Simulated scan of single mutants.
Amino acid sequence: MRLGLKAGINDQQIADRMQYQPTYFEFHLTAEDVTPTGLVRLREKIRYVRSQQVERIILHHPMSFEGHHIELSMNEASSPARYRFLWQSTLDLLQLAKAEDVQLLVHGSYDDPIEELTTGYGNITDAIRVLFKRLDYLQRIGGQNIMFENSISPIFYYGNPIFDQAIFDKGYRLAFDTSHCFIKLQGDQNAFLQSLATLREHVVHYHLVDSMGLKHDGLQLGTGKIDWARVLPLLNPDASSIYEVQLADQNDAREMIASHRYLTQLEQTLSE
């Protein structure tokens, strides 16, 4: 296991992460980071992080705009300003990702209520159809610089064998959040492991997070119910990863480092 860490566009957070010499680094972006000024600053931070011998850099698309999740499937008529932000920010970040040879991570969906996901559509099937058309488009223009992450949303998640196979057959470059899948499956370990195995070939990035499998809890690895000894052999060895665990202090990565220590010790034990 190689170390992957995450931080916002914050000098103190970045300095804290760089002291551990991570192999992978993910920027957690906000709407402020994709303004013209924000993008200039982001480019500077990307170049700084790369100068610290970080091998792979990932840009996590902003999660929200004006207090609402950025749903890739959103209907333009229902949220015109948010819709404009979705596409402007995505295209701007994709252009930056290509120019700087980094990765853009986009959520296929979040966990908004079904009534919000279907606003402006006849039903959830229509929303899913629109979502996959947009994923197809982004994959086509993004190529090797874009990936799509799962959540616990009913329109883009991992853990259903039929849905997993459909996603796999699309050939998308995938980001796999372990806690999201485990929570969606309400802690069903075997179904979770099967999803990891099914999608493994197309996963290019992991969010390694523990969970009790009931709700978003973002636990440090080894403190939840995920069986990491069974997970490790199912991870794609060519993929990057970061520990997306809850921190007591955003300026101190100690819970991420403890998670990495846990996983590397487990890896050593399994190899003996």
Results as ranks from 00 to 15, higher is better:
Thr198Val: 09
Met212Leu: 15
Gln220Asn: 12
Pro237Gln: 13
Leu219Asp: 04
Glu201Thr: 10
Val203Ile: 13
Gly224Arg: 05
Asp227Glu: 13
Asn236Thr: 08
Gly224Pro: 03
Asn236Phe: 07
Leu208Gly: 01
Gly224Val: 10
His202Asp: 12
Gly213Val: 08
Leu208Trp: 02
Pro237Met: 13
Arg200Leu: 03
Lys215Pro: 07
Val209Thr: 12
His216Met: 10
Gly218Leu: 11
Thr198Asn: 13
Val231Gln: 01
Arg230Glu: 13
Asp210Tyr: 13
Glu201Arg: 11
Leu232Arg: 08
Leu234Asp: 00
Leu214Phe: 06
Met212Asn: 14
Asp238Trp: 04
Leu221Trp: 00
Thr198Cys: 08
Gly213Ser: 10
Lys215Trp: 15
Lys225Trp: 02
Leu232His: 06
Asp227Arg: 12
His202Gln: 15
Leu199His: 07
Leu214Ala: 15
Ser211Arg: 01
Gly222Asp: 05
His216Gly: 15
Val204Pro: 03
Glu201Cys: 10
Asp227Thr: 10
Trp228Val: 12
Gly218Pro: 00
Asp238Thr: 11
Arg200Met: 06
His216Pro: 06
Val231Cys: 07
Arg200Gly: 04
Met212Asp: 10
Pro237His: 10
Arg200Ser: 07
Arg200Asn: 12
Ser211Phe: 02
Pro237Leu: 13
Val231Pro: 01
Val231Glu: 00
Ala229Tyr: 11
His202Trp: 08
Arg230Pro: 05
Leu208Gln: 02
Asp210Asn: 09
Thr198Glu: 10
Val203Tyr: 01
Ile226Thr: 03
Gly224Trp: 00
Asp227Leu: 14
Leu219Ala: 01
His202Cys: 08
Trp228Thr: 07
Pro233Leu: 11
Leu208Pro: 00
Glu201Lys: 14
Ser211Val: 07
Val209Leu: 08
Val204Ile: 15
His202Tyr: 12
Lys215Gln: 14
Leu199Thr: 03
Leu214Tyr: 11
Asn236Tyr: 08
His205Arg: 11
Thr223Glu: 14
Leu199Gln: 01
Leu235Cys: 12
Gly218Ala: 11
Arg230Ser: 15
His216Trp: 11
Glu201Ile: 05
Asn236Arg: 06
Trp228Gln: 05
Leu234Thr: 01
Gly224Met: 09
Val231Ala: 07
His216Cys: 09
His205Glu: 07
Asp217Phe: 02
Leu235Thr: 11
Asp238Cys: 13
Val203Glu: 01
Leu235Gln: 12
Leu235Phe: 12
Ser211Asp: 04
Arg230Ala: 15
Lys225Cys: 09
Asp238Pro: 03
Met212Lys: 14
Gly224Asn: 01
Ser211Gln: 04
Val203Met: 06
Leu234Lys: 04
Leu214Gln: 15
Glu201Asp: 15
Thr198Trp: 08
Leu208Arg: 02
His205Leu: 11
Gly224Ser: 11
Asn236Gly: 06
Thr223Val: 11
Met212Thr: 13
Asp238Glu: 15
Gly218Gln: 12
Ser211Pro: 02
His216Gln: 10
His207Thr: 01
